[in-house]
């Protein structure tokens, strides 16, 4: 199976318009589609409001009784569509919210996923951030509530955190509108692929498990060269995730390999990411 390369460039608007449409999002009129993820109580909706102002639209996810907010903004002459994902603690359980958020990040292939993280509860929030980093490498971490963290005597080495996570980290206090310009800038850089991200990928400490994973990753990458998240797909398959199995059967996974320009599949996803960018 060869990868389909669309006639347009990889950063052109809505190259994945059809899969977005299935998820109920029309990419029409927007240069980039941005997803907004995060734990509950992290000020995610404050970030959403700060970015979109009154340009919001509230509806439902297709076929689901889960509310979806969508908004838009313009930055440096480019238009962005921002999709607010349900607030979740994880993407590994089976709740509807998690499924929606997971499917959007995986199949919607947003140009950037902003993960809003609570600076006062970094460890717990990193659980979700690390899970998202396994699915997509186009991530910006919004380190929100930094003012509250300071009040509680918590200081965060943002550069170190950014280096560890391999993606831009923007400290902010969305309630005070602090950090919004920096966030927009980081989003733009990642969307236009001006910076190379090297997302942190979680390794398994269990040798047997890691071995099983690698066997599966080899096989996945042989069939889907350029798939940006082979390790994560392998993890989910070993967990018996039915929706991922289905995605393999109906070849939705194959579509995710675009914009693949790689000729040779690599074992190491990190290198693949760099090669693309």
């Amino acid at each position: 199976m060869t990868t389909q390369i669309m006639p347009n460039c990889e950063t052109c608007p809505a190259y994945n318009a059809s899969s977005l449409k299935k998820l109920g999002v029309s990419a029409e009129g927007a240069d980039y589609v941005i997803a907004l993820a995060g734990n509950p109580n992290t000020g995610k909706s404050t970030v959403f409001n700060a970015l979109t102002g009154l340009r919001q639209h509230v509806g439902n996810w297709p076929g689901k009784t889960v509310a979806r907010a969508e908004g838009g903004f313009t930055y440096n002459d480019k238009t962005y569509k921002l999709v607010d994902l349900p607030g979740t603690y994880s993407l590994l359980s089976t709740s509807t919210d998690e499924e929606i958020a997971r499917n959007f990040i995986l199949f919607g292939q947003p140009s950037v996923t902003i993960v809003v993280v609570d600076a006062t509860r970094l460890e717990r929030n990193l659980n979700l951030a690390l899970q998202i980093l396994q699915i997509t490498d186009r991530v910006v971490v919004a380190l929100n509530l930094i003012d509250e963290a300071e009040r509680h005597g918590i200081e965060i080495d943002v550069r170190h955190l950014s280096r560890k996570l391999g993606v831009p980290v923007v400290p902010m206090a969305a309630r005070q509108m602090q950090g919004i310009p920096e966030l927009l800038d980081a989003v733009e850089q990642v969307a236009r692929q001006k910076i190379a991200t090297k997302p942190h990928r979680v390794r398994q400490t269990d040798a047997q498990l890691e071995g099983a994973l690698n066997t599966l990753i080899d096989q996945i990458e042989a069939i889907y060269p350029g798939l940006p998240n082979a390790r994560w797909v392998a993890l989910r398959l070993l967990d018996g995730d039915e929706s991922i199995e289905q995605a393999i059967r109906d070849n939705r996974l194959g579509n995710l390999t675009q914009p693949a320009v790689l000729q040779q599949p690599t074992r190491e996803p990190l290198i693949a990411v760099e090669a693309i960018s």
């Binding site: 970094l122 005597g153 200081e155 965060i156 080495d157 955190l161």
Partner: peptide
């Protein structure tokens, strides 16, 4: 494994007064 990494990253990034 995820939480081990999260804890490791958090502990090296956060300092507390």
């Amino acid at each position: 494994a995820i939480y081990a990494d999260a804890a490791q990253i958090a502990s090296t990034s956060v300092s507390r007064d």
